[in-house]
Design a protein around this nucleic acid. Structure first.
Lengths: 93, 93
DNA sequence: CTGTATCCTAGATGATACTG
DNA sequence: CAGTATCATCTAGGATACAG
């Protein structure tokens, strides 16, 4: 939980399960996240070795994030969490 | 994550996987938790319907906690988290 | 487009003392 | 034994403006 136990990290990792994403695209997928928390979250995920960050030297700037091998090892948990959330929510209504 | 995304809740739930536990025992198993956070966590878990609380009218007081059906549905995720933590930790050393 | 810096608030957490 | 109350601290998180 020290690595992924925040409001946004699980969502970020989940959206990266399908492949690398450009920074802006990824941020748009995480509806509601502030610019600050998005940057802070991906920075920490990178520091913890769960995702990798690639900067393309072009203009305008382009940055892509993707899961590292360690991050990929969380796939089962991430999909379980997603599935549980969906099922559990359905049972509440 | 809104339900279990805190420092202690996953641990509390995990320790209840093997069956109901008396309050003091459970708290001792969660090494490092303060009395306040333990009480607050179990109260919220109870409010969210993940665990149930049973008070035995005896002296000295006896209180037991156990997983509800909804809490039990988290078993897969809890065990996955535990296993991932153990495996991941082993890979770091 | 991507990221940083700053200020601010709410909540999470902890230490301690106290009650039934 | 179980739980509450109080005080204090730290961090997560958000809004906004700015920079390369």
């Amino acid at each position: 939980m020290n690595l992924i136990g925040t409001k946004w990290k699980p969502l970020i990792l989940f959206h990266l399960l399908e492949g690398a994403l450009r920074s802006g695209i990824l941020q748009k997928k995480i509806s509601g996240v502030s610019n600050k928390m998005f940057t802070q979250s991906v920075r920490e995920l990178e520091k913890d070795g769960l995702i990798s960050r690639t900067v393309f030297p072009v203009v305008p700037p382009k940055v892509e994030y993707k899961l590292s091998e360690r991050g990929r090892s969380l796939e089962g948990i991430l999909r379980s969490l997603d599935q549980w959330g969906a099922t559990d929510f359905k049972n509440m209504i």
